[in-house]
């Protein structure tokens, strides 16, 4: 149907040039590629997780520990605007990592992930972690072909974060509350955090963890292995 006048003609004049209905989703390309990535991963029985948080919530620290302790072969795609620091840290933990620099871009997309996966070439049965660019806004819109979305927030960020970034937080399949080793030193109201979180994400499991001390990580490994 014509979007301008409601008639059934596909294309015609409206006081000027011809109007053509497209009805194309803005994210059509990304989503299409992401579904290829998902199929490809399923074909080699690899699971992928998209880790999203503000800058500095502890994604890389969590991964440094996870790749050593999970007990499954792991590899990592690191997304940052600049530098290879995080990929270097992961490699120092003994597993393969590919750094993707997004430059001016504020998020990873399916094109970047597909390319990085080709380079990483993960073995069958392994787990790939995709550390998104530290940003609680933009990554939420872009499907990367992952099997699960992990939202990480830390006790140094304030309890109201979920309500400030509802679009991304809503999409999380699991929420990790990191840096709980710092709870004695900061004003962080867990009950309030949970209330805020439940207003935008009513069901995702919430795990309280410390990537520094390892507290709570057994539940994280169990979730990854389920």
């Amino acid at each position: 149907m014509c979007a301008t006048c409601g008639c059934s003609d596909h294309s015609h004049e409206h006081g000027g040039g011809t109007v053509i209905d497209l009805e194309e989703r803005l994210l059509a390309r990304n989503d299409h590629l992401a579904s290829h990535v998902r199929e490809w991963l399923a074909g080699i029985e690899v699971r992928a997780y998209n880790l999203m948080s503000s800058p500095g919530s502890g994604k890389t620290t969590l991964l440094e520990r996870t790749v050593r302790e999970l007990g499954l072969p792991c590899s990592v795609i690191e997304g940052d605007q600049e530098t290879t620091f995080d990929a270097d840290r992961i490699r120092a933990s003994g597993v393969p990592a590919v750094q993707v620099n997004t430059g001016a871009g504020c998020h990873l997309d399916a094109v970047m992930v597909r390319k990085a996966l080709a380079e990483l070439d993960p073995p069958a049965g392994s787990v790939v972690f995709i550390e998104n660019v530290g940003n609680l806004v933009c990554p939420g819109l872009f499907d990367l072909g992952e099997n699960g979305r992990v939202v990480i927030m830390s006790v140094t960020e304030g309890e109201d974060k979920p309500l400030k970034y509802p679009h991304l937080v809503r999409t999380g399949d699991i929420v990790l509350l990191n840096k709980v080793d710092l709870l004695p030193y900061v004003d962080f109201d867990r009950a309030k955090f949970l209330r805020c979180l439940r207003q935008v994400n009513p069901h995702a499991p919430v795990l309280e963890v410390s990537a520094r001390t390892g507290e709570g990580l057994a539940d994280w490994y169990e979730w990854l292995s389920r």
Binding site: A3, G16, G17, T18, V19, I20, L22, L26, L27
Partner: peptide
């Protein structure tokens, strides 16, 4: 919704 609904060509351009 995130859609490209329609475009209008410049006068004289053909479909």
């Amino acid at each position: 919704e995130l859609l490209i609904k329609a475009v209008q060509l410049a006068p004289g351009e053909v479909v």
